[in-house]
Nucleic acid binder design. Structure first.
Lengths: 216, 216
DNA sequence: ACCTGAACACCGTTCAAGT
DNA sequence: ACCTGAACACCGTTCAAGT
């Protein structure tokens, strides 16, 4: 009596939120290559073109998925020192992005500007302002931190991913090419949280030096 | 008498070097979307499959193009202080990458490991060693600097490129979301060399603090 | 043995044709 | 007016058929 597969939307009416949630789950399970219009539609049981009623194009859809991935994030305590807040905010954002391997490359390539991304940006700016930076330094520093975070996410994705581990290859090549023959072990692994923290501490130290120069 | 277009390789025999050089020029003129096997072959006047005799796949071909883009690069003077050498090496690498907009996104996404990329890596390691860092710090710092450079290139490409300027949008959104209503002008532009230098100086200051802590 | 190009298995998106 | 899905204009790559 029933057709083998009902046409149209199998699971309720579509909405931007329901599409993004479905795509996020699909990416978690099958990786970045599953983030194709046709595959997202297949998982929803709808026509690929139905998605274009809710998003202007594929990139806009992925932007929504990327922002959704940054929803589960513990924001730092307002009373902590600014260094701690920066460290925890960026480490948490990195963790949240990497928890969703299907969309993490997109997050690394394009900063999400949905509500969750903007919330992170707001906390970032607040921490930098309260560190004592002026307007110009605050904006410039926020861009530097976002740039570093983006690369860190990209490196971690490549490292944990398939045999495409270009960053580890690069680290190895750089070690080998040194006349000092640097040892391979006892080094923080490419894409590791230790490696990430090392660079983050460098940046925070640099910011601290600027605050010290012009106090108040 | 002559056919309208001779078949086969129009301009001499193919080689990895001649293919990469042709693709680099094509990308310079027509942008990253021209970096397709079919379009590179069309410019060479050969069958797309002919390229697979010289490269395992498209990514390997683009890696060769990326390394070639880093050929024209003034390396820093060995006698300069390590801070100056780091600054000039990374600034020059950024400049060289952005001089080739067709392949710059690929450079940002995958560190070139050909002869030119490795040469840059060697100079980078040497500068860090002579700054007084230990082995672990040297490798970790080199990864941080490469990560920052990669993002800086990606941001500059997006900014100078089409209407895909996500990074400027992000900076604007971050400014707007601040309760302090930061002014938009008199800020270093996203992807600008000033913005790049600001972050580079932060990292160098952070490194300097580590050298000071354990001198020698 | 080498080389070619037709074919495969995909893409994102347009648009005409159906309801 | 809305929605569908066939079709378009591409991809990278495989592979069988030609020389």
């Amino acid at each position: 009596m029933v057709k083998s597969q009902p046409k149209g939307t199998v699971r309720g009416t579509l909405s931007p939120a329901s599409i993004a949630a479905s795509a996020l789950k699909l990416g978690d399970q099958e990786g970045p290559e599953a983030m194709a219009i046709r595959r997202i539609a297949a998982q929803l049981g709808c026509d690929p073109m139905a998605l274009y009623r809710h998003f202007a194009n594929r990139v806009a859809l992925l932007d929504a998925v990327a922002d959704l991935a940054l929803a589960d994030l513990a924001l730092p305590d307002d009373h902590d020192p600014w260094e701690d807040r920066l460290r925890s905010l960026l480490t948490e954002t990195r963790r949240a992005a990497l928890a969703h391997p299907g969309i993490a490359p997109h997050i690394a390539a394009r900063p999400p500007l949905g509500p969750h991304g903007l919330r992170i940006g707001r906390v970032l700016i607040e921490a930098l302002r309260q560190a004592g930076l002026d307007d110009r330094q605050t904006v410039a520093a926020s861009q530097v931190l976002i740039a570093y975070l983006s690369s860190a996410i990209a490196m971690a994705v490549a490292t944990q991913g398939r045999r495409d581990d270009r960053w580890s290859e690069a680290a190895q090549a750089v070690r080998d090419s040194s006349e000092h023959r640097l040892p391979a072990d006892a080094m923080p692994a490419v894409g590791s949280v230790d490696q990430f923290s090392f660079g983050l501490d460098l940046l925070i130290d640099g910011l601290r030096a600027r605050v010290r120069d012009r106090p108040r």
